[in-house]
């Protein structure tokens, strides 16, 4: 019964293909962003100025660091330093949770100001402003969902490392999770400037 014989290269290859589909998924939102931004540069500039850049920047650092810790975990595993690897995995999860908590505070301030998709406040504001915030919530929401999935994924792999199912000989699951996590990180590196920084520069 060797139907599922191991093919690590194949597994990584498949993961890359999957990551590609994720890029396309987000690119639909980015296209929408680009089109609306081009149409309402002033509204976008004003709306973007209302976002909390401090939290955004902080979160960027948090996420970049978490990518680093997860990569370190892979290296540790490959050197057979299981304890270190587990430590780095937990650190990554911790950082990811911090990211989500920050996001929670950010969203709740906005929501408390009556800014959320479908709110009366947005329905009354200028079309560009409404579009900006709707896209903001959809994009960061979808991204947050990916962070959440990532957390579950990393926790699962951590459990498998503990049970020895993922190990120095067979690290591909951890490697693939890391690939996924880097992508989530990478998408944020586009989301952050798109929403928080770039629109401010466009004053028609």
């Amino acid at each position: 019964m060797s139907i599922e014989h191991r093919d690590d290269t194949g597994a990584r290859f498949g993961m890359w293909l999957f990551l590609y589909t994720e890029v396309i998924l987000f690119s639909g939102l980015f296209v929408l962003f680009a089109m609306t931004q081009a149409r309402f540069p002033e509204h976008f500039a004003a709306a973007s100025a209302g976002l909390n850049t401090t939290i955004g920047t902080l979160n960027t650092f948090v996420l970049l660091t978490s990518s680093l810790t997860l990569s370190l975990s892979v290296t540790a595993l490959q050197l057979n330093k299981i304890r270190q690897s587990l430590l780095f995995c937990s650190g990554t999860v911790l950082l990811a949770v911090i990211f989500l908590v920050n996001k929670y505070f950010e969203w709740s301030t906005e929501i408390s100001h009556g800014i959320y998709p479908g709110s009366d406040h947005l329905a009354e504001s200028a079309p560009g402003t409404a579009a900006f915030f709707n896209l903001y919530f959809f994009t960061t929401g979808l991204h947050g969902l990916h962070i959440f999935i990532g957390i579950v994924l990393i926790l699962t792999v951590t459990g498998m490392i503990i049970r020895g199912k993922v190990s120095a000989e067979c690290p591909v699951l951890l490697v693939n999770s890391t690939l996924y996590w880097h992508l989530v990180d990478l998408i944020w590196i586009f989301v952050f400037p798109l929403f928080y920084l770039i629109p401010r520069g466009f004053h028609g």
Partner: peptide
């Protein structure tokens, strides 16, 4: 290459219907 684009488009229709975002 193409299917994820359908995914995001349908998600947007769904969100439009729930939140009425008007995109």
């Amino acid at each position: 290459l193409a299917t994820p684009m359908l995914g995001i488009t349908l998600v947007l229709v769904f969100l439009e219907r729930i939140f009425g975002a008007g995109l």
